[in-house]
C-alpha cells in the first residue's frame, strides 16, 4: 500500500525555516504526487480535526512536519493515534533534500 503524504506548513509560528518548507512544498508539487497540505497540525490537533482521525485510520502515511515525538503526541491529543508504520520527516532538523528524498525519492 502506497503511503499517503501529509505536509504541515506550520503557518502560525516561525519554527520551520521558510526555505526548507517552501522547498519541500515545491518538491511535492513538482513531483506530481498526490498529497494533503495543511496549514498547521498543532491548530488541527487543538480542534480535534476529524481529518487527523481519518489520516491516522487510513494506514501508512508519511508526514513532513517537525519532531516525530511532537507529531505523534499531537495526533494522540486529537484522539487520532498514528499507526505504527507512520513516518515523520522533521523539517526542523532535516534538509529539504533529505525530506523529499525520503518521501518521493527525488532531489530538489
Amino acid at each position: 500500500m502506497t503511503p499517503r503524504i501529509l505536509y504541515c506548513h506550520c503557518a502560525y509560528a516561525r519554527v520551520l525555516a521558510p526555505e526548507v518548507k517552501q522547498a519541500v512544498l515545491a518538491g511535492l508539487a513538482d513531483a506530481g504526487v498526490e498529497f494533503e497540505a495543511v496549514p498547521d497540525l498543532c491548530e488541527m490537533s487543538a480542534r480535534r480535526d476529524e481529518r487527523l482521525q481519518a489520516l491516522a485510520a487510513e494506514g501508512p502515511v508519511k508526514i513532513a512536519a517537525c519532531f516525530p515525538r511532537a507529531v505523534k503526541w499531537l495526533f494522540h491529543s486529537a484522539g487520532a493515534p498514528l499507526p505504527e508504520e507512520a513516518e515523520v520527516l522533521n523539517m526542523r532538523e532535516q534538509s529539504a533534500e533529505a525530506v523529499l528524498h525520503n518521501i518521493v525519492g527525488v532531489k530538489v
Binding site: H9, A11, L25, E36, P39
Partner: peptide
C-alpha cells in the same frame, strides 16, 4: 496554506 486553507 498561509490563509488557513487545507489543500488536497
Amino acid at each position: 496554506l498561509e490563509k488557513g486553507y487545507s489543500v488536497r
